[in-house]
Design a protein around this nucleic acid. Sequence first.
DNA 1: TGAGTATGTTCAG
DNA 2: TGAACCTACTCAT
Length: 286
Amino acid sequence: MPEGHTLHRLAALHTRRYVGRPVAVSSPQGRFATNAEMVDGRVLESAEAHGKHLFHHYGPDLVVHVHLGLYGRFSDDRLPVEEPRGQVRMRVIGETHYGDLRGPTACELLTDAEVDAIHARLGADPLRDDADPDRAWARISRSRAPLATLLMDQSVIAGVGNVYRAEALFRHGLDPQLPGRKLTRACWDELWVDLVDLLHDGYRRGKIETLRSEHDPRLVDGVGPCARATYVYKRTGEPCLVCGTPVAHARHLARNLFWCPVCQAPEPVRPARRAARRTTTRLERR
DNA sequence: TGAGTATGTTCAG
DNA sequence: TGAACCTACTCAT
């Protein structure tokens, strides 16, 4: 599930597994072979994530940049190494474990300047201490674009993908088509705090679960642990867990968008209704 | 076993 | 706007 939490988990894992010691880097598939030679045998100095991007720092102008894209994976296995299965773009071997990178959108060797450029174009990352939500707000509050577009714009908020977008908008009763400039500062502040909570939770669990306990059918009805743990994502036509209305689906900029037409009804929002809405979708800190 | 689908991004046209 | 990337999972057969 490569949204931001996945990449931050990988950065933390790679820090534990490999940082501070020499690693063997290769490209069984061959597409990263020349660059792999440049860092093979070097000490991995640090691993970090910004949004959905992962960086392995081997020294000045020696940074491996990885983006998993839609279906990239980075495995984690104990030594000894096995024969590569499938297309392994990059293999990193440490003292106790090794990782195989498959199907990434990007796996490239960058200079420091190129890495800086990526950081510069990425927006506030809810999982980074240096995140600047005011900069994100400056973009959102000036934009005519709908929230559904803005939340997925990595130059506004880095690390939020389709699942977190759908779930965060639902949790705040926000119409996905609401223009950014119509969002109130108070709503943004609550939304940001919740994104920080949600992504940290995903980081800890290693999966995206967004249901508050009172809405979790696994707790309410004793449904098996495999039941989905989202309010609207991939629940098209199923009853909203709060109001029972069938969850709606549409294509938005070539991506799937899910929302509850009642809990996230468009304007006008009357004060009484907003108050009622708050009692059912209030932000719950974990 | 095979078809269909996906949490993302870039590039061609 | 659609194709490409080319993995892994789910579901139907």
